[in-house]
Design a protein around this nucleic acid. Structure first.
Lengths: 193, 193
DNA sequence: GCAAAGTTAGTGAATGTTTACTAATTAACA
DNA sequence: TGTTAATTAGTAAACATTCACTAACTTTGC
């Protein structure tokens, strides 16, 4: 998926609205207002509203993946890679808090058949990456092998997600970076062989 | 919060719509249709739509809490209680899958100030319960004490949530009960002293 | 080198629908 | 007979989208 600069501007504006007020408040009106142009102008850049929503998902899927790929291509142990992966994501969310609702959107984007398929693909994709790292960690001996990778995946992804969501729920009123480090410390102890 | 039988019927119908199609598809029209009566009939039982949404949250908050209270009032170790708590919730969701979207709804109900406060209270409430059990488990020696209860809470709640959400995302196509038992087995090993 | 042709990104006005909600009325029944 | 629960028929506002049109660029062919 390639996007024009203008499309990316719109995607960012839409993401900000969703992050601040929820998907229900993302309307052609609110989006056009944030972009400082008229509603019909949106249709110069996207076929319809659903394409905007799908583009938001795909755009951040790409962003996330790029960052994760950088992390996992380094020459480190599985445990280190997992830690880096989590760390990268916490940094990402601190930097772009508006994206949280988009990335953790299983519950929000399921009103359209097409969108919920996209969401599913994104989630499965990430799960696969984490699982693969865990497996490599079990092989290189940095991660304990007495627990199934599937379960460890749930524990890692789940605890990270709930920490971030909780941050959002509490109006970003605590230091996510710090909380992230706490979680990483804990997970390290749990995962280590 | 006391509800009439008719109100509970409406709450259940609304929950089913949300569970199946998402909050955005819960409209006065769709809800009335599911209830087999006209839209204005809804207003016999609720002041407005927001009161319906709030009632859904409160109703299941009550249901959950009742079940959890039963579990934690038994005379068991902290570890056993935590396991029972998780187990209870998996059973609950298998029985009432439509409720999942309501219980794990931080992301969906935040379009209204009032509702998102209610959601926050529910989440915080549950977090407190889990944390208290963990603490008692650390005191009675059934749960390891080298990790902070806050972090353990995130790990437990997060992994449970993501397992259930994943089940939903995949159209309920695997055995959640079994997956829940797997998770419990894993968590037991991790938490044990 | 420059006019004709085409493209890009926007506008205001209007569209048909859907939304939540209300007023007035009626059927049921204890 | 009076309360409860429903109805029919409506409303204003919000919604996504289309329409006809324009101003400002860019490309192309002579």
């Amino acid at each position: 998926m390639k996007f024009t600069t203008r499309q990316i501007e719109i995607i960012n504006a839409a993401t900000e609205i969703i992050g601040l007020k929820g998907v229900q408040k993302l309307t052609t009106k609110s989006l056009a207002a944030k972009m400082n142009f008229s509603e019909p102008a949106l249709y110069r850049h996207f076929k319809d509203k659903n394409e905007i929503l799908r583009s938001i998902l795909l755009y951040f899927k790409g962003n996330m993946r790029e960052g994760l790929n950088n992390v996992i291509s380094e020459n480190k142990t599985g445990l280190e890679k997992i830690i880096d992966t989590i760390s990268f994501q916490f940094n990402f969310f601190v930097k772009y808090p508006a994206v949280i609702m988009v990335i953790f959107s299983e519950t929000s984007f399921q009103n359209d058949e097409n969108l919920s398929i996209t969401v599913k693909e994104i989630v499965d994709d990430k799960r696969k990456i984490v699982k693969a790292i865990l497996l490599s960690g079990q092989k290189d001996g940095s991660i304990r092998s007495d627990l199934k990778t599937n379960q460890l995946t749930n524990i890692i992804m789940g605890s990270m997600r709930i920490t971030v969501l909780n941050w959002r729920l509490h109006g970003f009123d605590f230091d996510l970076q710090k909380e992230g480090e706490e979680l990483i410390k804990t997970l390290k102890i749990i995962l280590k062989k």
